[in-house]
Nucleic acid binder design. Sequence first.
DNA 1: TGTGCCTGAGACGTCGGATGTCTCGCACGA
DNA 2: TCGTGCGAGACATCCGACGTCTCAGGCACA
Lengths: 223, 223
Amino acid sequence: MAVTDEAIEKIKGMIVSGALRPGDRLPKESELAADLGLSRNSLREAVRALSLIRILDVRQGDGTYVTSLDPQLLLEALSFVVDFHRDDTVLEFLAVRRILEPAATAMAASRISEQQLDALANQLDKLGNAPSVEELVACDLEFHRGIVQSSGNSVLCSLLDGLSGPTTRARIWRGLTQEDAVSRTLHEHRAILAALRDRDAEAARSWATVHIASVEQWLRSTL
Amino acid sequence: MAVTDEAIEKIKGMIVSGALRPGDRLPKESELAADLGLSRNSLREAVRALSLIRILDVRQGDGTYVTSLDPQLLLEALSFVVDFHRDDTVLEFLAVRRILEPAATAMAASRISEQQLDALANQLDKLGNAPSVEELVACDLEFHRGIVQSSGNSVLCSLLDGLSGPTTRARIWRGLTQEDAVSRTLHEHRAILAALRDRDAEAARSWATVHIASVEQWLRSTL
DNA sequence: TGTGCCTGAGACGTCGGATGTCTCGCACGA
DNA sequence: TCGTGCGAGACATCCGACGTCTCAGGCACA
């Protein structure tokens, strides 16, 4: 195995074993390189790779630190990966979302706060009846994110965030600009919100399923 | 932004835009570095980072290539990230799995082949009544992987594979060595298989839910 | 003519050092 | 006491050199 890959494994090992804890600072590059038995250049490749996936946080002039390792932070890397997928796999991602999002919405029904409900309502009101595609995409993302956050499961939240990344979402909406689709989407958002306000988990789940399935159906017909 | 990060973005851009397609070979390091306006060392940091998440495949003595970009390959990086999570988030991962796995199992009910069913049955028979913990973990992983693959959704498959990675699974089973848990797990596996053979999606979904929920419950009581 | 070995070119792997840039803490002066 | 300036420390970037590996093509042998 290459020395750089070894270094990646060793640093990973130090973190997983607990020798390095979240927030800890690593020895300076030259020292760490000497400890692990490689050159500073090669070590930097390892550190760079780990910082891309948010395991390490490198601050110029200061030092290198272990991140908080929050699921939210680590799964952020997921959206980077998702960006690489081609259009022909969008449907598969959407199918996964169709499984997760209704479940998350149902979970939120019993936990979401009144303030959060009001915030979601305000957000929908602000949008008006004839939003631009950009506004709609942003609103859609924000609406679902707000609900999923109330599910209380940060892994689920980050996962959905990654799967519904801006790129994927934008690609979908690019093909869905019919007036009919837009208004129906807004109507479904209101229905989901109403179900949440009623604390009706099953209704919330069903509306979320309908919502995503309709997007999926339109998308399938346009591909 | 650092030149290395710029390079990462530029290479990503070349792939996403289609200038570089799966399987394509990149210009040699020195040329690419010159094109992107940085040194070979810095470029190598970018390439290393992208190869860690399986976007690029570097072959010493040959060249650097774009990978197939299969969902399976890219989501493989997920398990690397999951390894970093501490015990207190295992329950959240398990909760996500409890959402995905029953859905995948239900999807498999209508698509799984007779050969696959026979293979799963053989696998369960081979295990016997008093397997070691290692055997049980391997069997459990293999059993569920086989079913999920039959769901026909490669994204779903890779995602579950990553979430149920060896590390997480091993950590779970370490705390579940009671005889009762083992035999009940085997019984549930057989029930899932029977439902699949009956092409009964709802029964398969329910057994899968029960199966994971029972693991979750035991785990929760031991933490 | 077909097969196998050998060799050389090309590409990545690794290294050491030099210099630039940034951050933080401390000392100094108002 | 507070704000500024300076210097040490750490990361950022680059350069050039050499090692190692892969692959393809030439050459010898059967």
